[in-house]
Amino acid sequence: MLHFAVSPVIASIFALLAIGSLVLSFVMLGSRWLKDYLHAFALQSWLIAGLSATIAWVTGFHELYYVAVLTALFRGLVLPWLLLRILRRLHVDRELHEVVQPATALLLGALLVIFAVVVAYRIDQTVGIGAQTVTTALTVMLSIKLIGFLVLVIRREAVSHVLGILQIENGIFLGSQILVPGMPMMIELVLLFDLLVAVACFGVLVRYLAGVVGATDSKALRRLTG
C-alpha cells in the first residue's frame, strides 16, 4: 500500500528520479573505467537523496529531510571519496579482464529489468494495490539489486565488487523510501553508519590484498578450492 496520495506531477517526479537511478546502474554496468562507476554511484546517491527530500515534502515525514541530507553527504560524498582514495593508492583505473563484453553486459542487464518488471507486476497483482508508483518503485528496486549482483559476477576488480554491493544497498534504500517512508529513522541512520564501517573494512582489506597477494583482481584469488 502506498501511504500517501500522489498527484500525477509528483508521481512523474518519483518516476523520473527512480528511472534516473536505474539508468545510472546501467552506466556502471557498461563502463570499464572505475572512475565512471564511482561518479555514477555518487550521482545515483544524489538522486536518491532528492527522492527522499521529495517524499518528505509530499508526505510530511519530516525526518526524511535528515535522511536526504545524510544520504547526499555519506553516500554521495564520503563513500565515493573513500573509494577514490583507495583507487589512487592502488593505481588501478580500469577493469583489465572482461568476463563479458560491455554490450553483452548491457543486454543481460536489460533482461534482468524485464524480469524485475514481471515480478513487480506480479507482487502488485497479488497484493492488489494497483498504484503505478508502487510498481515503479518495486521494479527499480529489484532491477538495481539484480544489476548489482550482475556486476559482482562479471567484474574482477576488488573496488568494483565494493561498488556492486553499495549499488545493491542503494536499490533497497530507494525502494524502501517509497514503499515504507515511515520506517523508523533510527534504523536508517544505523544503516548509513553501518555502510560507512563496511566501506572502511573493505578499504583496509583491499590494502592487505594489494600488499600480500600483490593484486586486487579476484582472478588472483583461486587458491582455496574443494
Binding site: 539489486k145 548489482g148 565488487h161 582489506l205 592487505y208 600480500v212 584469488l221 582455496l224
Partner: peptide, 24 residues
C-alpha cells in the same frame, strides 16, 4: 597469508551480498 586474505575477501563479499537479500 595469501590464503587467509583470499578467504577473508570471499567471506566479506559473498556474505555482504547475501545479507542484502535479508535486508530486502
Amino acid at each position: 597469508q595469501v590464503e587467509s586474505l583470499e578467504a577473508a575477501w570471499k567471506y566479506i563479499i559473498i556474505v555482504s551480498a547475501g545479507l542484502s537479500l535479508a535486508l530486502l
